[in-house]
Each structure stands twice: as C-alpha cells, then as structure tokens.
Design a protein around this nucleic acid. Sequence first.
DNA 1: CTAAAATATGGTATCGGTTTCATATCACAA
DNA 2: TTGTGATATGAAACCGATACCATATTTTAG
Lengths: 326, 326
Amino acid sequence: MASMKEVAKRAGVGIATVSRVINNSGYVKKETREKIERIIREIEYVPNEIARSMTRQQTQIIAFILPHSNHVFFSQLLYHVENALYQYGYKMMVCNSGSNKEKELDLIRMLKNNRVDGLILLTSNDIEQYIKPNLPIVSFDRRFKGLPFVASDNYAGGQIAAEVLLKNHPKKLLFIGDDAQGPLSTIETEVTKRRLGFVETLEKYHFSNYEMIEYPLADLFVPKNYIEQQLEAHLDACGIFCISDMVAEVVIKKLEASGKRVPEDVKVIGYDGTKSYLNFGRTITSIEQPIQALSKCLVSTLIDKIRGRETENTILPIRFIKGETA
Amino acid sequence: MASMKEVAKRAGVGIATVSRVINNSGYVKKETREKIERIIREIEYVPNEIARSMTRQQTQIIAFILPHSNHVFFSQLLYHVENALYQYGYKMMVCNSGSNKEKELDLIRMLKNNRVDGLILLTSNDIEQYIKPNLPIVSFDRRFKGLPFVASDNYAGGQIAAEVLLKNHPKKLLFIGDDAQGPLSTIETEVTKRRLGFVETLEKYHFSNYEMIEYPLADLFVPKNYIEQQLEAHLDACGIFCISDMVAEVVIKKLEASGKRVPEDVKVIGYDGTKSYLNFGRTITSIEQPIQALSKCLVSTLIDKIRGRETENTILPIRFIKGETA
DNA sequence: CTAAAATATGGTATCGGTTTCATATCACAA
DNA sequence: TTGTGATATGAAACCGATACCATATTTTAG
C-alpha cells in the first residue's frame, strides 16, 4: 500500500511536508499543498493508523470485556457503548470472557500488549489484585479499589419491588437470585443490593414471611430446572421478586404450569426491563435500568480517566415498569 | 512502558538477542536466555503489539460491521463470531452501521486505515461499487461480486414454512416481510429467498389464495403499528409466514387482540429461531438458522481468504422448530 | 590440527508515520 | 540596504519491534 514516502517522492518534496499537509499543521505553500493533495488522491494514499499509533502512543481503541455479549441486557449495553465511543472517535474491541477468571486476566494482558487506550470491564470475578493502574479502566456494576465504576441504583430497585409487592398485603414473598447474592459469597457486586434493598424494605415494614431462593450462577444464564425444582416448595408465595427478567420468565412459566395465575394469584416482578422482541406473551413487570445512560456514562467516565481528569463513581436511577405480571 | 531496548540494556545484550528470546527463534545461549527472561519478569516488560503489527504488516484484528449489534439475531451471531475469532488468535472490532450507507463506507475506510486484517460485512446497502479488493472481506446473507458469502438456506426455509402451513388445508395464507423483499426492490439479499421459497412452493401445490404484506424497512426493527394496521384487512388468513420471529410476535399479539386464537384459528410461523429469554408466553414455531455454524463458517472463510487460500460461498441448512404457534 | 558447520550475538535497515531542528527564502519595517 | 519575523521545507531522530547480515566463538568432522 502506498506510503507517505511514495507521495513525497512523486511530489518531489520531503515526507515532513506531506505530513504537514495531512495533519494540516505548520506552514505549507498553497501550490505545494495542492500538488500533494492531488497526488494523494491519485495514488489513493491512506494514512497508516498503526504507524500513527506508534508515534502518538495511543491507538484510539477501547476494549470492552464482558461475560457474554449475546446476553439480552449486555448486548444492549454493548450497542450503546459502541455508539457513544464512535461519537468520541474511538473504536471498540469486544472480548467475551465467559465469566472465566483466567480468560479475563489473559484478555487484560493481551489488551495491554495491544496498547488499547482504555478498558470497560464487566466482571463478577475477584480480580482486584491483578489490576495494575497502568491502564485506564472503568468498571460496570462492580466496585474495584482505585477504579471508577458505573451502575444503576440497585438498592432502589429492590426497594421499589418490595413496596409494590407489599401493596397487595401478601402472606408470603419470595426473592430469587443467583448465589453471588448469597450472604456467604465473598464477591460483592452492586447487584447484591437488589436483594438488600428488597429485604431491608420488607423489614422496615415489619414483614418477615419471606424466603430466598439462590441458584448456582453459571455463565449468567438461568438454570431452569433448578429454579423450577426449588420453586415447588414455595408455590404458596403471593409475590416474587426475581433478579432478572430471564428468571422471571422461567418462574412465570413454572407457576402457570402449576395451576397458578399470574398476576391474579402470584405477582411477579423481574429486573432489567429490556424490551425483548420475543415477549409476545405479556410484558413483565420490571425494574428498568437506563441502559443508554449507563453506556454514555461508562464512556464519558473512561475518557475522563484517559485524559487524566478527575473521575467519580456514578449511580443512575432506575424506573419501575408497570407490566402485566404484577 | 518498558521497551525491548530497556531489557537489552539491563541484560547487557543487543535488542536482537532480546527479540530472539521473546520469539523463541534463532540461537541464544541458555544463560543469556535465562537472564533476559528474568529481567523481563523483573521490569514487567510486555511486548508492544503495535510495533509488531508495524513490522509484521498485520494486526490480527478483524472488524465486524453490522447494522445493530443489539438485534436479537445479530447479537448471537456477534457472540459466536468473537469466540471463533479468539480460537484463531484474532481480536474483534465491532462497528454498528445503523444500516446507514454513508456510515458503512466511512467505517470501511477507517478500518482500512487501521489495517485490520479482514472484515465481516453484514449489510443490505448497495455498496458493491465501493468495495476495493485490497481488504479481505466475507459477506453475510448477501452476494457481492468478488466476495465470498455465507448464508443459511433461506429458500428451503420458505419452502418448509409453506409445506407446514399447507398441511392444514388452509383457505388463505399470508406472507409478511419487509419491502426489501418486494419485487420492486433493487437490492437482493439472500433473505429475499424466504419469500421466494414460500411463494414458489405454494404455486407448486397450486395454491393461489395468498397475500403479501410488505412493511417499510427501518433500522431492522419492526414497525408495529404499520403491521397491525395492514393485518386488519387480512384477519381471514388461516396461516401466516413471517420474515422474522420479531414480526411473528407482533402478529400474534394483534391476532389475539382481534379475538383470534393461535394456533387454533391461525397458524403463525416465524423465522430465525433465536431462543429469547423473555418469550415466556409460548415458543414461536419457527425456522431456525444455525447461528453458531454460520459464525464459524464466516470466520474460517475469512481466514482462508486472508491466507490467500481458495474460498467458496456457503449455504448452511436450516431447521424447522415445532413451537406452539403452528 | 585445521576446515567446516553450528552456535551466539550485535549492528543496522526497515515498517510508516510525527516532530524537532536547522536552513532558506521572502516580505516588510527601520 | 539590512535586520527581523513570518513562511516554507527537508534532514534526521524517534516510536518499538523484526530480520537480515556480519562477525565471533565453539563444536564437530576429517
């Protein structure tokens, strides 16, 4: 492919002059500029961004590590992050970690080798000790020492779910979440607060007849059979708060298969509020996370960090979605 | 960040020797190797892939241009493509084009500047004339002169849908698709063949009481109101074949709101077969595309192309999914 | 014991740009 | 006419690696 040198030779000038024309910097005589521009067009010269990255010491590439980009919620996040990055002139590299700690660390190493300018990190693994401060990182839904993070208000989400369910004066309530939510878990993500907000609100209203179902977290996807089985013992619940809409879906199906009507007999509230295009049954009552705002915030925080500006943690408000299941 | 030069200086050797150690090439004395390896560990040297890309003249980066990465089907494709690329040691850059022709062309230009090693292109725009052969490209679901493409067997999909619906001896059938499917459209994607396979099969069985609804294609998402309105005039249809599961969802909701029962009164067949996690209502009867196989094929074809090997077009088989709507 | 082959290492050009510095020309004011 | 600042341009160092070539040392073969 044609290089600057080629352009310079044809124009009978030095490469520095060509560089000045391309970057529109310094002094260049009008005729010289025009001649160079003409030659650039003629031989279809395109600047080599790799070489530029080399001297500029920056690539304009941001990496996004996440567990599964095909996950409904994450794929929305990914989309909006890419759009936001594009606005700032950055390109996005996507890496699926599959929630695998080793792979995550390997990816981070690889991305450093590739000199990405920054990283958006979405993980529930305990990798705090491996994170060196030599790469600008912003974390989603997870606090790491020394890294700014962005999340939505999970505590308020749990709180609202509790209040909505309590309105119907239920006999018994249920929370269903993954075991990363459990009291024994050493990993504390922001998501933990959904449960916390829910439980503390119940307690606040002196409601104590509630149970927790915790399912093993594997690949972020929902272990249908396990949940169905656990649910058997709690078919007497009047209201169920689920950690995600995906879980809510499984729960609703199981309830109906067991002869319960939703929402008449049991109210079900999910979480995330991603409008799927395949939920032709009903709309799930849910707590909606502001995905686009979260994405924009992730990006602007990261760019602040890259530019050496002050950054801070951000928690964005959630919204209650009145659906047809509660 | 530490460079090879730094390592060489500390080890008291030339940079060429360091290079040999890192790449495990050429002759290096055992003690020298160990000393260099120790220093690399000590100062936490990591090779600069940008500089490597520079000399090697390749980046190990593949770009994926697609309309909307948050689209249910595409996000699955994206996920599997990334995984397949990772297997081959490639990184993936994702670019949303929003189906915008200008943006697509701009992205291609930008990606060339960034010297990506190859491109996976998913577009329905007419950009054939702008594609230069100086970048290895594989196209999904779309034929471009000079480019290999990968698709699933859309014709067979339409054929099967027709045969399934005909089994119930219907009075009237319906096809609903976007206007890129229309006879007046100048753009011919592989997707067109869903309609073709459907219609030609109906004709083959001498069934002629069918209608087509075409909705304006905007951003790949489904114009709910438009379809509902058009559907009003065809509530007497006994079977409907929809261009996607998303459309099927809209259609089923509308039918039920109009007092029709699905599948008792009207059979509905969708397309794509992506198992959404929010379809708690029912499973849509659909034609499933083999997303993972398609992804793997896209990647291996592209890599063949990059390596200068012979490539060919691939059409993978689809599968009928017996759901609860037909 | 010597020539040839294998081992070991460093210098340097190169990839394709950016940027600093030196030099040259020009216009204009003193 | 000459000094000065603005304009114009090129040579060369540098970014951080790879790879070729030259040279030096050691090993092996004859």
